[in-house]
Amino acid sequence: MMQWQLLQRDILLGELSEYDCDQPFFLARFLPGPGWESVRPLFEALAALRGPDPDGTRTVAVVKPLRDLDLTLVPVGGGHSVLQVFKDCWLRIDGSEARLRY
């Protein structure tokens, strides 16, 4: 399974270690890094979204600020391309658990 570093430019926000799959998502453990606190509230808002969102407006309102941060997932040890979060992949972090779709 893959391991990733979540970065905002050169700031380490955290590390993800995939451990299972729940199609279409990969499940990962999340370990916060030194820059995590600056983005934590935005990911918490995304994790709090529940229920139907027929036109997607609630989701867009929460994801746009995250997309604007230009976050990347960099594979540890190679084996995969660098992913632009919310462009090349979907990432949801809730505490120590993450769900990644790429």
Rank of each mutant, 00 (worst) to 15 (best):
M1G: 15
M1F: 15
M2W: 10
M2F: 12
M2V: 08
Q3A: 10
Q5F: 10
L6Q: 00
L6D: 00
L7W: 02
L7A: 01
Q8M: 04
Q8G: 04
R9H: 13
D10R: 02
D10A: 04
I11L: 09
I11Y: 06
I11Q: 07
L12N: 00
L12A: 01
L13Q: 00
L13E: 00
E15L: 04
S17D: 10
S17Q: 12
S17L: 09
Y19S: 05
D20R: 11
D20G: 12
D20S: 14
C21I: 14
D22S: 15
D22C: 14
Q23T: 15
F25T: 03
F26G: 11
L27C: 10
A28N: 08
A28D: 08
A28H: 08
A28C: 12
R29I: 13
R29L: 13
F30R: 05
F30T: 06
L31C: 09
L31Y: 07
P32V: 01
P32T: 00
P32M: 01
G33M: 03
G33A: 06
P34W: 07
P34Y: 08
G35H: 02
G35Q: 03
G35P: 03
E37Y: 12
E37R: 13
V39P: 00
R40N: 07
R40Q: 13
E44K: 11
A45Y: 03
A45F: 02
A45N: 03
L46N: 00
L46P: 01
L49G: 09
L49Q: 08
L49V: 08
R50I: 07
R50P: 06
P52G: 09
D53R: 05
D53Q: 04
D53H: 05
P54W: 10
P54N: 07
D55L: 13
G56S: 04
T57R: 11
T57Y: 10
T57S: 11
T59Y: 13
T59R: 13
A61P: 06
V62Y: 03
V62F: 04
V62R: 01
V63N: 05
K64C: 14
L66W: 08
R67F: 11
R67W: 10
D68C: 07
D68F: 08
L69G: 01
L69T: 01
L69A: 02
D70T: 12
D70C: 14
V74Y: 03
P75M: 03
V76Q: 11
V76L: 12
G77K: 06
G77M: 04
G77D: 04
G78P: 00
G78L: 00
G78S: 00
G78E: 00
G79D: 06
G79W: 06
H80R: 15
H80V: 11
H80K: 14
S81G: 13
S81T: 14
S81H: 14
V82M: 03
L83Y: 07
L83N: 03
L83H: 05
Q84S: 12
Q84W: 11
V85T: 08
V85K: 05
F86Q: 05
F86E: 05
K87F: 08
C89R: 01
C89E: 01
W90C: 11
W90L: 12
L91C: 05
L91V: 05
I93V: 10
I93S: 02
G95Y: 11
G95H: 10
S96D: 15
S96V: 13
E97Y: 15
E97K: 15
E97N: 15
E97V: 15
A98T: 02
A98L: 01
A98K: 02
R99E: 13
L100E: 00
L100S: 01
L100A: 03
L100Y: 04
R101K: 10
R101C: 07
Y102V: 05
